[in-house]
Amino acid sequence: MNAESKDVIHSRLWEEEASEDDPFTAQACFCSGYDVYGEILELASYPEYLYLLFRGERPAPPSARALEILAIAIANPGPRDPSAHAAMCAGVSGSPGAAVLMAALAAGAGVSGGAREVFLCMNLWNTCGRNPQAWHTALLTPPPAGKMEVWPVAEHPPGFSPYARSCAIPVLQTLAALARQLPGGNTAWLHTQRAAMEEASGHPLAMTGVIAAALGDLGFAPATGEMLTLLLRLPGAAAHALEQRESGFRHFPFFAIDIINDPGPPAAPGETP
């Protein structure tokens, strides 16, 4: 392969300038036209750079602050969450760091409490907007049968909690904080309409619903929102995995098991089964 090869990567978001002495080393990198190491490195905040990477434009200060609030809110779902629990299983048994994060991604990806639920909920926002009747219909109508997917069918309305009795206080605090940064959008509307939405769905609002509303307000498409949810939830999973690796498997739950169809120990030679 050489500079004239047809094997090229087309990109709107990234450009590199090769070093004069090595075509494989970049001497400058540009993200959507901005000099990453010459300017962004010291002038931009991390949420501003994240937003730039995924939207291609720098955010207004309230949008950057909203993304930062969202990142803090979901950075650590806590060690009881399936994604962190899965990460701890890898961490406590000494698996590679990447296996820890792959475990967190797999268990945090699903349609029940995971990134796919955020994706589905963002699709609902795109369909229903701020129309209470549309939401009412969508929340009570099973999704139309299409071709079978690798994803299991959602067992509860996306964005709402399958089991909680009332909306959890951290969810309310996150909703309020994001609504203040994103006035006039879906998040602020959700903040005022929460009770009606919960009544329509028959479930309390969940963090996934807040994430979906805020990511939509920030202009992210559902697939981008799904990806950001996966990414932003990793720090807590990693931290808990490292903590459990340190404390060791003897201090980590192993749980009892009840094998309903246990055939029992095999009969000893000469023993009647």
């Binding site: 450009e15 300038e17 970049a26 540009f30 300017e39 962004i40 720098r58």
Partner: peptide, 25 residues
């Protein structure tokens, strides 16, 4: 599969300064 810098075909916005830029969205 090594890729040299020129294997990136940039099709996005032209280079622009961050320092002077106003907020856009």
């Amino acid at each position: 599969f090594p890729l040299r810098c020129s294997a990136l075909r940039h099709e996005g916005p032209a280079r622009r300064p961050w320092r002077e830029a106003g907020t856009i969205s």
